[in-house]
């Protein structure tokens, strides 16, 4: 194989795998949007908050220690030196469930029947609250997150691929981050589990009923509020998974919450209401972004177009298909 071809394959694989990460965040959006009609702008901050909390539990940090120390001149830092990742993850999951419950109780409950746009803006407010509280609780310094997922390149892959290159060419092997491979595997498991859950369990059926029609679901005795808590908790869980992946890769810091912005074009492309749309949309965006960066960005020498290219792709797509890839067809009625 020629070096160009091998490079192309490498780009495609890396693109698809970074796309999986987008899909993961987009999935959280879609679940909440389907079940409660809320476009949850705080999804990215969810991921940041979950990652911060996880690190906090792992290292035994005292919540609000900065604040307490500043107020009372004390010097608290840690409860205990460290906690096994497994328990830390369990504790984080519990935290995210409590968070979902609080959000339903304190925010959503009071905003029922409001216009979608009001709900959307409320989630922007929510994002700010979570960001502020997260920083107050755990501090805003960049943290290292390690739950034992291997990362870095694979020597085996590099050696194998060097063998594929045509004789005499200069090729140093493919670089694929093992972390991304793990992320892919976990994402696939997660999506399969979700699909099975919503197809084959009683709660799953209730969930689909709510997604279809709130009023009708209420009338057959489904508790809207408990479904909402459930959905927000699941989204919190997905956010945690995304937070772990992104946090492992680049440290836990504020920029983590910006992955939500990356997931938005995925939503446009895939449609706000479609789970397969979120997954395929994510893959397409990841792929398009990486290809564009190398073949368009490199060609024109303008660099770093990845900030907006995904949006551009999604918009062009939208002009031809306003409801997205798998979104419900929009029929306007009067």
């Amino acid at each position: 194989m020629s070096v160009e071809l091998l490079n192309f394959i490498e780009t495609v694989i890396n693109g698809l795998m970074s796309g999986i990460m987008y899909s993961l965040v987009a999935l959280g959006f879609v679940l909440i949007f389907k079940a409660s009609g809320v476009f949850n702008f705080a999804q990215g901050v969810f991921a940041l908050f979950a990652a911060l909390t996880l690190v906090g539990f792992q290292t035994g940090q005292v919540p609000f220690s900065h604040l307490i120390n500043e107020l009372f001149g004390t010097n608290f830092h840690n409860w205990y030196p460290s906690l096994h990742s497994f328990f830390a993850i369990i504790l984080t999951i519990i935290t995210m469930i409590v968070l979902a419950w609080l959000i339903e109780k304190l925010v959503l409950k009071h905003l029922v029947n409001q216009e979608p746009i009001i709900l959307f803006m409320a989630t922007i407010g929510l994002a700010f609250v979570l960001e502020g509280v997260g920083d107050l609780m755990w501090g805003s310094d960049v943290k290292v997150l390690d739950v034992g997922i291997p990362s870095g390149g694979s020597e085996w892959l590099e050696k194998t691929t060097i063998g594929w290159a045509s004789e005499g060419s200069e090729y140093y092997g493919m670089y694929i981050d093992v972390l991304n491979v793990w992320a892919t595997i976990i994402a696939v498991i997660l999506v399969t589990a979700l699909a099975l859950f919503s197809q084959y369990t009683k709660t799953g059926r209730a969930l689909r009923a709510v997604a279809d029609d709130h009023q009708a679901a209420l009338s057959v005795g489904i508790s809207l509020r408990s479904i909402w808590v459930l959905v927000w908790a699941i989204s919190g869980f997905i956010a945690m998974v995304a937070g772990i992946m992104w946090g492992t890769e680049s440290g836990v810091q504020f920029s983590l919450s910006l992955i939500a912005l990356k997931a938005l074009p995925v939503l446009i492309l895939g449609g706000f209401t479609s789970i397969p749309g979120a997954i395929i949309g994510g893959l397409l965006i990841g792929l398009g972004e990486k290809l564009a960066e190398i073949y368009i960005g490199g060609l024109l020498d303008i660099g770093a177009i990845e900030n907006w290219f995904a949006y551009f792709m999604a918009l062009v797509f939208l002009l031809f298909r306003p409801q997205g890839l798998f979104g419900d067809k929009i029929i306007e009625r009067v």
């Binding site: 107020l71 925010v107 905003l111 009001i118 922007i124 929510l126 502020g132 805003s140």
Partner: peptide, 28 residues
Amino acid sequence: IGLSAVTAKHFEITIWGLLMVVFLILEP
């Protein structure tokens, strides 16, 4: 109160968010 500027900034963000949510709930 004598908080550090960083902590105060975090409080500010939190308060912005809270105000936004509270306003939308009480008086859209």
